[in-house]
């Protein structure tokens, strides 16, 4: 067994035990068989760098990332509610282009997801080779690449680099 398969087995078994919560011997045995089979077949597809699971500081930064995401999410919802209720519809939309320095797939996925959940922005497409993100912005404050990057991406980029890179 390789390391990535064992990590995937543990994750899958955690989800399985959540799904069949009152822990039971039958459920556990079936779960061990199914999770073993799934992790044996698809072990290398999901986890490409298993050595990164050892660093404890990454977990601590992840714990810092969750309240940040929840705060931004609530701010975004209040913003959207204000725009929807207001009689004049105060929107000024457009698609802008920002630059990111993140490289790995997981980090880019999390960056795009958190941009979608933050106030007024939604990711439309990713250009992986050059590191550009195309973002639909409901209230365009600046069309320039540098300034838009500072406003949109900066909050999450440092934290995500410390977690996933």
């Amino acid at each position: 067994m390789r390391k990535s398969q064992i990590i995937l087995f543990l994750l899958a078994f955690l989800v399985w035990s959540f799904l069949t919560w009152p822990l039971d011997l039958q459920h556990l045995i079936v779960g061990i068989f199914i999770c073993g089979f799934v992790s044996f077949v698809t072990g290398d597809m999901f986890i490409k760098r298993p050595h990164m699971f050892k660093h404890i500081s990454r977990y601590l930064w992840f714990l810092y990332y969750i309240p940040l995401l929840i705060r931004e999410c609530i701010k975004a919802n209040i913003d959207v509610a204000y725009r929807v209720i207001h009689p004049d519809l105060p929107i000024n939309p457009g698609i802008v282009k920002v630059k990111t320095t993140l490289k790995s797939d997981t980090a880019l996925t999390f960056l795009a997801n958190s941009i979608t959940l933050t106030p007024g922005t939604m990711s439309v497409d990713i250009d992986e080779e050059n590191g550009f993100l195309y973002i639909h912005w409901i209230e365009v404050k600046d069309k320039d690449i540098q300034k838009a990057t500072e406003i949109i991406v900066k909050i999450f980029e440092d934290v995500l680099r410390r977690i996933f890179e």
């Binding site: 929107i91 939309p93 922005t121």
Partner: peptide, 21 residues
């Protein structure tokens, strides 16, 4: 409010933004 945004906002991208969040 999200479903109201789906009705009120003018184009697809704005609607998608408001309603998804």
């Amino acid at each position: 409010l999200g479903c109201l945004g789906l009705i009120r906002l003018p184009d697809l991208y704005n609607r998608l933004q408001a309603s998804t969040k």
